[in-house]
Design a protein around this nucleic acid. Structure first.
Lengths: 196, 196
DNA sequence: CAAATTAATTGAACGCCGTCCAATTTTTTA
DNA sequence: TAAAAAATTGGACGGCGTTCAATTAATTTG
Protein backbone atom coordinates (compact mmCIF):
# COMPACT_ATOMS: atom_id res chain seq x y z
CA UNK A 1 0.00 0.00 0.00
CA UNK A 2 1.25 3.49 -0.80
CA UNK A 3 0.02 6.87 0.21
CA UNK A 4 -3.46 6.95 1.75
CA UNK A 5 -5.69 9.76 2.77
CA UNK A 6 -7.69 8.07 5.49
CA UNK A 7 -6.41 10.53 8.06
CA UNK A 8 -4.56 13.80 8.22
CA UNK A 9 -1.26 13.86 10.01
CA UNK A 10 -2.96 15.33 13.06
CA UNK A 11 -5.69 12.70 13.08
CA UNK A 12 -3.07 10.02 12.76
CA UNK A 13 -1.13 11.44 15.66
CA UNK A 14 -4.23 11.47 17.75
CA UNK A 15 -5.15 7.95 16.65
CA UNK A 16 -1.75 6.65 17.68
CA UNK A 17 -1.81 8.41 21.02
CA UNK A 18 -5.32 7.21 21.75
CA UNK A 19 -4.58 3.59 20.95
CA UNK A 20 -1.10 3.80 22.44
CA UNK A 21 -2.38 5.10 25.74
CA UNK A 22 -5.06 2.44 25.78
CA UNK A 23 -2.51 -0.29 25.25
CA UNK A 24 0.03 1.19 27.64
CA UNK A 25 -2.66 1.37 30.33
CA UNK A 26 -3.61 -2.21 29.65
CA UNK A 27 -0.29 -4.03 29.39
CA UNK A 28 2.11 -1.71 31.19
CA UNK A 29 5.42 -0.23 30.16
CA UNK A 30 7.44 -3.43 30.12
CA UNK A 31 5.12 -5.09 27.61
CA UNK A 32 4.23 -2.03 25.58
CA UNK A 33 5.32 -2.04 21.95
CA UNK A 34 5.03 0.41 19.08
CA UNK A 35 4.43 -2.43 16.65
CA UNK A 36 1.36 -3.50 18.56
CA UNK A 37 0.02 0.05 18.48
CA UNK A 38 0.46 0.08 14.70
CA UNK A 39 -1.51 -3.16 14.45
CA UNK A 40 -4.19 -1.72 16.68
CA UNK A 41 -4.88 1.23 14.38
CA UNK A 42 -4.46 -0.68 11.14
CA UNK A 43 -1.28 1.01 10.02
CA UNK A 44 2.23 -0.35 9.70
CA UNK A 45 5.11 0.18 12.08
CA UNK A 46 6.71 2.52 9.57
CA UNK A 47 3.86 4.98 9.97
CA UNK A 48 4.49 5.28 13.70
CA UNK A 49 8.03 6.26 12.83
CA UNK A 50 6.87 8.76 10.24
CA UNK A 51 4.75 10.51 12.81
CA UNK A 52 6.87 10.26 15.95
CA UNK A 53 10.35 9.54 14.67
CA UNK A 54 11.37 7.20 17.45
CA UNK A 55 10.18 5.05 20.27
CA UNK A 56 11.27 7.59 22.88
CA UNK A 57 9.37 10.39 21.19
CA UNK A 58 6.27 8.21 21.21
CA UNK A 59 6.72 7.30 24.87
CA UNK A 60 7.25 10.92 25.81
CA UNK A 61 4.06 11.89 24.02
CA UNK A 62 2.18 9.11 25.78
CA UNK A 63 3.54 10.16 29.15
CA UNK A 64 2.57 13.72 28.27
CA UNK A 65 -0.97 12.52 27.75
CA UNK A 66 -0.89 10.83 31.15
CA UNK A 67 0.19 14.12 32.70
CA UNK A 68 -2.70 15.90 30.99
CA UNK A 69 -5.19 13.41 32.36
CA UNK A 70 -3.58 13.58 35.77
CA UNK A 71 -3.77 17.36 35.93
CA UNK A 72 -7.44 17.33 34.92
CA UNK A 73 -8.13 14.66 37.54
CA UNK A 74 -6.42 16.70 40.23
CA UNK A 75 -8.25 19.91 39.37
CA UNK A 76 -11.57 18.13 39.28
CA UNK A 77 -11.00 16.68 42.72
CA UNK A 78 -10.20 20.11 44.08
CA UNK A 79 -12.99 21.96 42.31
CA UNK A 80 -15.53 23.29 44.74
CA UNK A 81 -13.75 21.83 47.72
CA UNK A 82 -13.58 24.21 50.66
CA UNK A 83 -11.76 22.43 53.45
CA UNK A 84 -8.72 20.16 53.55
CA UNK A 85 -7.77 20.85 49.98
CA UNK A 86 -4.21 19.61 50.47
CA UNK A 87 -5.42 16.33 51.89
CA UNK A 88 -7.72 16.06 48.90
CA UNK A 89 -4.76 16.64 46.61
CA UNK A 90 -2.81 13.88 48.32
CA UNK A 91 -5.75 11.51 47.99
CA UNK A 92 -6.02 12.46 44.35
CA UNK A 93 -2.32 11.67 43.88
CA UNK A 94 -2.81 8.16 45.22
CA UNK A 95 -6.15 7.61 43.53
CA UNK A 96 -4.80 8.60 40.18
CA UNK A 97 -1.74 6.39 40.53
CA UNK A 98 -3.81 3.43 41.68
CA UNK A 99 -6.53 4.01 39.10
CA UNK A 100 -4.07 4.43 36.24
CA UNK A 101 -1.38 2.20 37.58
CA UNK A 102 0.34 1.30 34.35
CA UNK A 103 0.22 4.74 32.81
CA UNK A 104 1.38 6.36 36.04
CA UNK A 105 4.18 3.87 36.49
CA UNK A 106 5.34 4.44 32.93
CA UNK A 107 5.98 8.09 33.80
CA UNK A 108 8.89 6.89 35.90
CA UNK A 109 9.83 3.59 34.26
CA UNK A 110 10.58 5.23 30.96
CA UNK A 111 13.85 7.10 30.84
CA UNK A 112 15.05 9.10 27.91
CA UNK A 113 18.23 7.76 26.29
CA UNK A 114 21.31 9.60 27.54
CA UNK A 115 21.63 12.98 25.93
CA UNK A 116 17.97 13.43 25.02
CA UNK A 117 15.97 16.05 26.86
CA UNK A 118 12.23 16.19 27.51
CA UNK A 119 10.44 18.64 25.26
CA UNK A 120 9.41 22.05 26.49
CA UNK A 121 5.80 20.97 26.41
CA UNK A 122 6.54 17.98 28.63
CA UNK A 123 8.27 20.21 31.15
CA UNK A 124 5.28 22.52 31.09
CA UNK A 125 2.98 19.67 31.96
CA UNK A 126 5.10 18.66 34.93
CA UNK A 127 5.22 22.27 36.02
CA UNK A 128 1.47 22.59 35.68
CA UNK A 129 0.92 19.78 38.17
CA UNK A 130 3.51 21.26 40.49
CA UNK A 131 1.82 24.62 40.08
CA UNK A 132 -1.41 23.27 41.52
CA UNK A 133 0.43 22.12 44.62
CA UNK A 134 2.30 25.40 44.93
CA UNK A 135 -1.03 27.22 44.81
CA UNK A 136 -2.62 24.97 47.42
CA UNK A 137 0.34 25.23 49.75
CA UNK A 138 0.52 28.99 49.36
CA UNK A 139 -3.15 29.12 50.31
CA UNK A 140 -2.56 27.47 53.67
CA UNK A 141 0.68 29.23 54.52
CA UNK A 142 0.66 32.41 56.61
CA UNK A 143 1.15 35.46 54.41
CA UNK A 144 4.73 35.98 55.58
CA UNK A 145 5.73 32.46 54.64
CA UNK A 146 4.41 32.44 51.08
CA UNK A 147 7.88 32.62 49.62
CA UNK A 148 8.41 29.08 50.86
CA UNK A 149 5.51 27.71 48.86
CA UNK A 150 7.52 26.66 45.80
CA UNK A 151 10.37 24.86 47.56
CA UNK A 152 7.88 23.32 49.96
CA UNK A 153 5.68 22.15 47.12
CA UNK A 154 8.61 20.46 45.35
CA UNK A 155 9.67 18.76 48.54
CA UNK A 156 6.21 17.66 49.62
CA UNK A 157 5.50 16.37 46.13
CA UNK A 158 8.63 14.27 46.48
CA UNK A 159 7.48 12.99 49.87
CA UNK A 160 4.03 12.10 48.62
CA UNK A 161 5.55 10.55 45.53
CA UNK A 162 7.78 8.36 47.65
CA UNK A 163 4.82 7.12 49.66
CA UNK A 164 2.78 6.49 46.53
CA UNK A 165 5.67 4.76 44.81
CA UNK A 166 6.27 2.43 47.75
CA UNK A 167 2.56 1.73 47.94
CA UNK A 168 2.46 0.74 44.30
CA UNK A 169 5.73 -1.13 43.92
CA UNK A 170 5.12 -3.34 46.93
CA UNK A 171 7.77 -1.94 49.25
CA UNK A 172 5.19 -0.82 51.79
CA UNK A 173 3.40 -4.14 51.65
CA UNK A 174 6.73 -5.83 52.28
CA UNK A 175 7.32 -3.66 55.32
CA UNK A 176 3.83 -4.01 56.72
CA UNK A 177 2.67 -0.46 56.11
CA UNK A 178 -1.12 -0.47 55.92
CA UNK A 179 -1.96 3.20 55.49
CA UNK A 180 0.36 4.91 53.01
CA UNK A 181 -2.09 7.76 52.39
CA UNK A 182 -2.39 8.47 56.09
CA UNK A 183 1.38 8.45 56.48
CA UNK A 184 1.80 10.86 53.56
CA UNK A 185 -0.82 13.21 54.97
CA UNK A 186 0.88 13.15 58.36
CA UNK A 187 4.25 14.07 56.88
CA UNK A 188 2.76 16.95 54.90
CA UNK A 189 0.90 18.22 57.94
CA UNK A 190 4.08 18.20 60.01
CA UNK A 191 5.96 20.19 57.41
CA UNK A 192 3.25 22.80 57.32
CA UNK A 193 2.94 22.90 61.11
CA UNK A 194 6.35 24.52 61.22
CA UNK A 195 4.94 27.63 59.59
CA UNK A 196 2.20 27.89 62.16
CA UNK B 1 31.39 -27.73 23.87
CA UNK B 2 29.86 -30.06 26.41
CA UNK B 3 30.25 -30.34 30.14
CA UNK B 4 33.20 -28.43 31.59
CA UNK B 5 34.68 -28.27 35.03
CA UNK B 6 36.13 -24.79 34.93
CA UNK B 7 33.89 -23.72 37.79
CA UNK B 8 31.58 -25.20 40.34
CA UNK B 9 27.96 -24.17 40.27
CA UNK B 10 28.61 -21.75 43.13
CA UNK B 11 31.61 -20.21 41.40
CA UNK B 12 29.60 -19.86 38.24
CA UNK B 13 26.80 -18.15 40.12
CA UNK B 14 29.28 -15.76 41.66
CA UNK B 15 30.97 -15.17 38.30
CA UNK B 16 27.65 -14.28 36.70
CA UNK B 17 26.62 -11.98 39.52
CA UNK B 18 30.00 -10.27 39.54
CA UNK B 19 30.05 -9.63 35.80
CA UNK B 20 26.31 -8.95 35.71
CA UNK B 21 26.56 -6.30 38.39
CA UNK B 22 29.51 -4.76 36.66
CA UNK B 23 27.62 -4.53 33.38
CA UNK B 24 24.38 -3.39 34.99
CA UNK B 25 26.29 -0.62 36.77
CA UNK B 26 27.92 0.38 33.52
CA UNK B 27 25.09 0.35 31.00
CA UNK B 28 21.99 0.63 33.19
CA UNK B 29 18.84 -1.43 33.35
CA UNK B 30 17.41 -0.48 29.96
CA UNK B 31 20.50 -1.68 28.11
CA UNK B 32 21.36 -4.60 30.33
CA UNK B 33 21.18 -8.06 28.77
CA UNK B 34 21.76 -11.59 29.99
CA UNK B 35 23.35 -12.52 26.68
CA UNK B 36 26.01 -9.88 27.14
CA UNK B 37 26.78 -11.18 30.62
CA UNK B 38 27.28 -14.65 29.17
CA UNK B 39 29.72 -13.23 26.62
CA UNK B 40 31.52 -11.39 29.38
CA UNK B 41 32.29 -14.53 31.35
CA UNK B 42 32.98 -16.73 28.34
CA UNK B 43 29.93 -18.94 28.70
CA UNK B 44 26.86 -19.26 26.52
CA UNK B 45 23.45 -17.82 27.19
CA UNK B 46 22.18 -21.29 28.00
CA UNK B 47 24.42 -21.46 31.05
CA UNK B 48 22.87 -18.33 32.52
CA UNK B 49 19.54 -20.07 32.25
CA UNK B 50 20.90 -23.23 33.82
CA UNK B 51 22.03 -21.29 36.83
CA UNK B 52 19.26 -18.72 37.26
CA UNK B 53 16.34 -20.15 35.31
CA UNK B 54 15.04 -16.84 34.00
CA UNK B 55 15.83 -13.24 33.37
CA UNK B 56 13.78 -12.09 36.35
CA UNK B 57 15.56 -14.44 38.71
CA UNK B 58 18.87 -13.03 37.48
CA UNK B 59 17.68 -9.45 37.88
CA UNK B 60 16.39 -10.17 41.36
CA UNK B 61 19.73 -11.66 42.35
CA UNK B 62 21.55 -8.63 40.93
CA UNK B 63 19.26 -6.25 42.79
CA UNK B 64 19.85 -8.33 45.90
CA UNK B 65 23.55 -7.73 45.47
CA UNK B 66 22.91 -4.01 45.17
CA UNK B 67 20.98 -4.12 48.43
CA UNK B 68 23.90 -5.92 50.10
CA UNK B 69 26.34 -3.28 48.97
CA UNK B 70 23.93 -0.54 49.98
CA UNK B 71 23.47 -1.91 53.48
CA UNK B 72 27.23 -2.20 53.96
CA UNK B 73 27.69 1.35 52.68
CA UNK B 74 25.08 2.66 55.08
CA UNK B 75 26.54 0.88 58.10
CA UNK B 76 30.01 2.06 57.25
CA UNK B 77 28.87 5.65 57.06
CA UNK B 78 27.23 5.35 60.45
CA UNK B 79 30.05 3.46 62.14
CA UNK B 80 31.68 5.50 64.87
CA UNK B 81 29.47 8.48 64.19
CA UNK B 82 28.24 10.14 67.36
CA UNK B 83 26.11 13.09 66.33
CA UNK B 84 23.52 13.61 63.59
CA UNK B 85 23.35 9.97 62.69
CA UNK B 86 20.03 10.33 60.88
CA UNK B 87 21.36 13.14 58.74
CA UNK B 88 24.33 10.93 57.96
CA UNK B 89 21.96 8.15 56.95
CA UNK B 90 20.12 10.51 54.60
CA UNK B 91 23.38 11.65 53.07
CA UNK B 92 24.37 8.01 52.67
CA UNK B 93 21.07 7.32 50.90
CA UNK B 94 21.78 10.02 48.34
CA UNK B 95 25.47 9.27 48.04
CA UNK B 96 24.82 5.62 47.38
CA UNK B 97 22.16 6.35 44.78
CA UNK B 98 24.34 8.93 43.04
CA UNK B 99 27.48 6.82 43.27
CA UNK B 100 25.75 3.66 42.01
CA UNK B 101 23.20 5.37 39.84
CA UNK B 102 22.46 2.53 37.45
CA UNK B 103 22.41 -0.23 40.02
CA UNK B 104 20.27 1.83 42.38
CA UNK B 105 17.87 2.81 39.63
CA UNK B 106 17.52 -0.82 38.57
CA UNK B 107 16.12 -1.62 42.03
CA UNK B 108 13.01 0.30 41.00
CA UNK B 109 13.03 0.01 37.21
CA UNK B 110 12.86 -3.73 37.30
CA UNK B 111 9.46 -5.14 38.18
CA UNK B 112 8.70 -8.79 38.62
CA UNK B 113 6.25 -10.18 36.07
CA UNK B 114 2.71 -10.33 37.43
CA UNK B 115 2.28 -13.21 39.80
CA UNK B 116 5.95 -13.61 40.76
CA UNK B 117 6.99 -12.70 44.27
CA UNK B 118 10.39 -11.56 45.52
CA UNK B 119 12.26 -14.29 47.34
CA UNK B 120 12.40 -14.40 51.11
CA UNK B 121 16.07 -13.45 50.97
CA UNK B 122 15.29 -10.37 48.92
CA UNK B 123 12.67 -9.29 51.42
CA UNK B 124 15.18 -9.81 54.20
CA UNK B 125 17.62 -7.48 52.49
CA UNK B 126 15.02 -4.75 52.16
CA UNK B 127 14.06 -5.25 55.78
CA UNK B 128 17.70 -5.08 56.84
CA UNK B 129 18.07 -1.61 55.36
CA UNK B 130 14.79 -0.54 56.89
CA UNK B 131 15.98 -2.00 60.18
CA UNK B 132 18.93 0.35 60.26
CA UNK B 133 16.61 3.31 59.91
CA UNK B 134 14.21 1.97 62.52
CA UNK B 135 17.15 1.66 64.91
CA UNK B 136 18.39 5.18 64.22
CA UNK B 137 14.96 6.70 64.60
CA UNK B 138 14.28 4.81 67.79
CA UNK B 139 17.54 6.19 69.14
CA UNK B 140 16.44 9.79 68.73
CA UNK B 141 12.84 9.32 69.85
CA UNK B 142 11.85 9.92 73.46
CA UNK B 143 11.44 6.63 75.30
CA UNK B 144 7.64 6.89 75.34
CA UNK B 145 7.48 7.31 71.57
CA UNK B 146 9.58 4.33 70.58
CA UNK B 147 6.57 2.38 69.36
CA UNK B 148 6.33 4.85 66.51
CA UNK B 149 9.82 4.06 65.27
CA UNK B 150 8.80 1.42 62.73
CA UNK B 151 5.93 3.29 61.05
CA UNK B 152 7.98 6.47 61.13
CA UNK B 153 10.96 4.73 59.59
CA UNK B 154 8.85 3.36 56.72
CA UNK B 155 7.33 6.74 56.09
CA UNK B 156 10.55 8.70 56.32
CA UNK B 157 12.28 6.21 54.07
CA UNK B 158 9.54 6.87 51.54
CA UNK B 159 10.03 10.62 51.89
CA UNK B 160 13.76 10.41 51.47
CA UNK B 161 13.31 8.00 48.60
CA UNK B 162 11.00 10.45 46.85
CA UNK B 163 13.56 13.22 47.17
CA UNK B 164 16.37 11.00 45.96
CA UNK B 165 14.29 9.69 43.08
CA UNK B 166 13.38 13.17 41.90
CA UNK B 167 17.01 14.23 42.25
CA UNK B 168 18.13 11.36 40.05
CA UNK B 169 15.40 11.26 37.43
CA UNK B 170 15.61 14.96 36.70
CA UNK B 171 12.28 16.06 38.15
CA UNK B 172 13.95 18.29 40.70
CA UNK B 173 16.24 19.80 38.09
CA UNK B 174 13.16 20.52 35.99
CA UNK B 175 11.52 22.27 38.92
CA UNK B 176 14.57 24.25 39.93
CA UNK B 177 15.28 22.44 43.18
CA UNK B 178 18.95 22.88 44.04
CA UNK B 179 19.28 21.14 47.37
CA UNK B 180 17.39 17.85 47.47
CA UNK B 181 19.41 16.54 50.39
CA UNK B 182 18.69 19.63 52.45
CA UNK B 183 15.00 19.38 51.67
CA UNK B 184 14.93 15.71 52.67
CA UNK B 185 16.71 16.46 55.94
CA UNK B 186 14.28 19.26 56.70
CA UNK B 187 11.26 17.01 56.19
CA UNK B 188 12.71 14.31 58.42
CA UNK B 189 13.56 16.81 61.11
CA UNK B 190 10.02 18.17 61.07
CA UNK B 191 8.53 14.73 61.46
CA UNK B 192 10.73 14.02 64.45
CA UNK B 193 10.09 17.43 65.98
CA UNK B 194 6.55 16.34 66.66
CA UNK B 195 7.82 13.80 69.17
CA UNK B 196 10.49 16.20 70.48
C1' DC C 1 39.12 -50.48 34.27
C1' DA C 2 35.24 -50.15 31.14
C1' DA C 3 30.55 -49.27 30.41
C1' DA C 4 26.49 -46.93 31.62
C1' DT C 5 24.48 -43.10 33.61
C1' DT C 6 24.14 -38.49 34.96
C1' DA C 7 25.17 -33.64 34.65
C1' DA C 8 26.62 -29.52 32.34
C1' DT C 9 27.15 -26.78 28.24
C1' DT C 10 26.21 -25.23 23.80
C1' DG C 11 24.11 -22.66 20.14
C1' DA C 12 20.57 -22.78 16.72
C1' DA C 13 15.66 -21.79 16.46
C1' DC C 14 11.59 -19.10 17.75
C1' DG C 15 9.00 -15.10 18.11
C1' DC C 16 9.36 -10.84 19.71
C1' DC C 17 11.48 -5.90 19.67
C1' DG C 18 13.11 -0.91 17.70
C1' DT C 19 14.99 0.91 13.62
C1' DC C 20 15.91 1.79 8.82
C1' DC C 21 14.91 2.42 4.05
C1' DA C 22 13.94 1.09 -0.96
C1' DA C 23 9.90 0.46 -3.36
C1' DT C 24 5.28 1.66 -4.20
C1' DT C 25 1.24 4.41 -4.50
C1' DT C 26 -1.37 8.53 -4.04
C1' DT C 27 -1.75 13.47 -3.89
C1' DT C 28 -0.16 17.86 -5.20
C1' DT C 29 2.09 20.96 -8.17
C1' DA C 30 3.52 22.78 -12.66
C1' DT D 1 -1.26 15.63 -18.29
C1' DA D 2 3.35 15.02 -16.77
C1' DA D 3 6.53 15.71 -13.02
C1' DA D 4 7.43 16.27 -8.24
C1' DA D 5 6.40 15.56 -3.58
C1' DA D 6 4.47 13.13 0.24
C1' DA D 7 2.84 9.11 2.68
C1' DT D 8 2.75 4.24 3.48
C1' DT D 9 4.43 -0.28 3.42
C1' DG D 10 6.88 -4.28 4.91
C1' DG D 11 11.07 -6.78 4.52
C1' DA D 12 15.78 -6.69 6.44
C1' DC D 13 18.86 -6.07 10.31
C1' DG D 14 20.66 -6.90 14.66
C1' DG D 15 19.22 -7.39 19.14
C1' DC D 16 16.44 -9.57 22.99
C1' DG D 17 14.57 -13.61 26.38
C1' DT D 18 13.54 -18.34 26.11
C1' DT D 19 13.67 -23.25 24.89
C1' DC D 20 15.70 -27.55 23.91
C1' DA D 21 18.00 -31.43 21.20
C1' DA D 22 22.59 -32.62 20.72
C1' DT D 23 27.03 -33.05 22.52
C1' DT D 24 30.59 -33.73 25.76
C1' DA D 25 32.64 -34.46 30.29
C1' DA D 26 32.33 -36.25 34.90
C1' DT D 27 30.55 -39.70 37.86
C1' DT D 28 28.69 -44.00 39.15
C1' DT D 29 28.22 -48.73 38.55
C1' DG D 30 29.48 -53.47 37.42
Amino acid sequence: MGRRSDHTREELRELILEEGHRQLSEVGFARFSAREVAKGIGYSIGTIYNVFGSYSALMLALNGRTLDIWLAFLEERLAGREKDRLDAAIEAYFDFALGHRHAWTALYDFRLPAGELPSESYREKVEAITGVIVREIAAVLPADARQHALPLARSLLASVHGHCFFAINGTFAMLGEQDPVGAAKARVAEALARYG
